[in-house]
């Protein structure tokens, strides 16, 4: 925005800097609040969000990434009810045991990779020097596709943002159940942080 001002760039409409505190966990205090209560002051044609990021090296901008879409978050809670009892008498419907099996199945789930216009072009559009490659990163989607076809070679939870952009995710991030070591609990819960592809 400083550059726009200094260069006296003619603008068709306002350029607005918006900093809000909600982050993705409390949007009711952040962007959701702004949209619901102050949309008339914004009416943005498009937004450049922080997740797009910019890379600067040696004081010079090397790249500015722009998001064209964002995954949709669908957090869900799994609730298992079982028979309460004493730990000395194990029960077949133990809530934590059954929930653990369900969470394990979700954790091992391999949803298919699906590309949109942006992810299809990402590897070829990104300047090679924009960001140093991470040890586990694979930026070639054709390689990722081949890995997808060969379940024996793909790493389930590879720390690869490129791969994450092309697949829905569902990591189990919360798990709760029980209150005493010798008591079989009647309930157990787990929360999945499902991130679905935008289309």
């Amino acid at each position: 925005m400083l550059t726009l001002k200094r260069l006296n760039v003619p603008l068709d409409r306002d350029v607005i800097f918006l900093a809000e505190s909600g982050e993705e966990g409390q949007v009711e205090w952040g962007i959701q609040y702004m949209v619901e209560n102050h949309w008339s002051e914004i009416q943005a044609e498009f937004a450049i969000a922080e997740a797009g990021n910019a890379v600067r090296k040696g004081g010079k901008e090397r790249s500015v990434n722009v998001m064209t879409a964002e995954k949709s978050a669908y957090p869900v809670q799994l609730l298992v009810k079982g028979t309460a009892g004493h730990g000395s008498v194990p029960l077949p419907d133990n809530a934590i045991g059954r929930l653990s099996q369900a969470v394990a199945r979700v954790y091992q789930w391999q949803p298919p990779m699906r590309l949109n216009d942006t992810t299809e072009r990402t590897s070829s559009a990104s300047p090679p020097s924009a960001r140093p490659p991470k040890p586990h990163a694979t930026t070639d989607f054709s390689t990722l596709r081949n890995q997808q076809k060969s379940r024996s070679t793909i790493r389930l939870h590879e720390p690869n943002p490129q791969l994450h952009a092309a697949k829905p995710l569902s990591p189990p991030n919360m798990f709760a159940g029980g209150y005493r070591v010798n008591v079989i609990p009647s309930t157990a819960t787990a929360t999945l942080d499902i991130r679905a592809l935008p289309d």
Partner: peptide, 30 residues
């Protein structure tokens, strides 16, 4: 959700949407 249900493969497990990204409407207002 149907796909998740299929993966979980246990009909006794309840799946509840928490949905912190839902826009507030008359239907889900507190």
């Amino acid at each position: 959700m149907a796909e998740l249900r299929k993966v979980i493969n246990d009909p006794s497990i309840e799946i509840k949407a928490r949905g912190f990204y839902r826009p507030k409407t008359a239907a889900n207002a507190d």
